[in-house]
Design a protein around this nucleic acid. Structure first.
Length: 271
DNA sequence: CCGGACGCCTGTCGGC
DNA sequence: TGCCGACAGGCGTCCG
């Protein structure tokens, strides 16, 4: 499900409700996520205040005085802010209840998400320490991608989805960005010019910012912290449009599989 | 080191 | 109507 825009939408949605609030109760209904939810999570969290709510790639990081709660939404996760005591539906695996009677609830049918707690500096955590640059920060430049890609034969689509290079660009926004940059998704990363990487970086930033403005993309089940869908779906140029005409040249949008993931592109506009 | 495949899960949808 | 396979927004791990 959630790529950077959806996670950022979630972060912005939950922050006003839980920032500086004290956690009064933690309810784990099912600990079987990608990794088991730590058995001592309640003990680690209860009675503490959330002092910061940050995002690193697709991870949400809640800072507490004693450590950091690491949340990942996997493919099907969402986080909602509900009144404490709201009806519990299927797959509501975790509730973090606050003293102000708000409840942060993780819902994740496929259970690919994660809930972990670390007392060490979070930037040293194994899941965080090797992450690549943030796409909306200055560190992502055409030069950076050009340099990192030299000698690599990986398809450019897999390269921009590699979280050790740049974080947050998932399957939808990779297809969309490559379309806007006019780059064929199978092109070897090491055989793309600096000029084209400069273009690509420009469109990645543009697409992610536009998607955040629309509250993310809802294909099937993404909802924000208020339970509402994202509206960037209406702006998708190629994703999911197999067989339909390209808005730019009218040729037929095609799809192929790259790295086990459906990939959409215009064979005429992308070379 | 690199690139590609696999597996983790449940829900939904299309075809027969 | 029912069954069955394919597929879905991620990513750590393993293999050659």
């Amino acid at each position: 499900m959630p790529e950077l825009p959806e996670v950022e939408t979630t972060r912005r949605g939950i922050a006003p409700h839980i920032l500086n609030q004290r956690i009064s109760q933690v309810i784990v209904r099912d600990h079987r996520l990608r990794w088991p939810i730590p058995t001592d999570l309640a003990q680690q969290l209860e009675q503490q205040r959330v002092t910061e709510i940050q995002r690193r790639g697709k991870y949400l990081l809640l800072t507490l005085p004693t450590g950091t709660l690491i949340l990942h939404l996997g493919m099907s996760g969402n986080l909602r802010v509900l009144p404490a005591g709201s009806a519990v539906l299927k797959h509501a695996h975790l509730d973090i209840v606050f003293a102000n009677q708000q409840c942060l609830r993780l819902h994740d049918p496929r259970r690919f998400g994660a809930v972990l707690f670390t007392v060490d500096p979070v930037e040293q955590h194994p899941l965080i320490k090797d992450l690549g640059v943030e796409p909306l920060e200055k560190a992502l430049t055409g030069d950076y991608l050009f340099t990192r890609s030299r000698g690599r034969k990986i398809p450019i689509k897999s390269f921009v989805m590699d979280g050790k290079i740049v974080v947050g660009v998932g399957n939808i926004y990779a297809s969309e960005s490559l379309f806007l940059a006019g780059i064929h998704p199978k092109r070897h990363a090491g055989r793309i010019t600096l000029a084209r990487y400069v273009t690509l970086v420009g469109v990645i930033k543009k697409v992610l910012r536009a998607a955040i403005k629309q509250g993310g993309t809802t294909l099937r089940d993404f909802v924000n912290s208020d339970g509402k869908p994202g509206y960037f779906s209406q702006h998708l140029r190629v994703y999911g449009r197999d067989g339909e005409p390209c808005h730019h040249c009218q040729h037929t949008i095609r799809h192929c599989i790259i790295g086990q993931r459906a990939t959409y592109y215009c064979p005429h506009c992308q070379t």
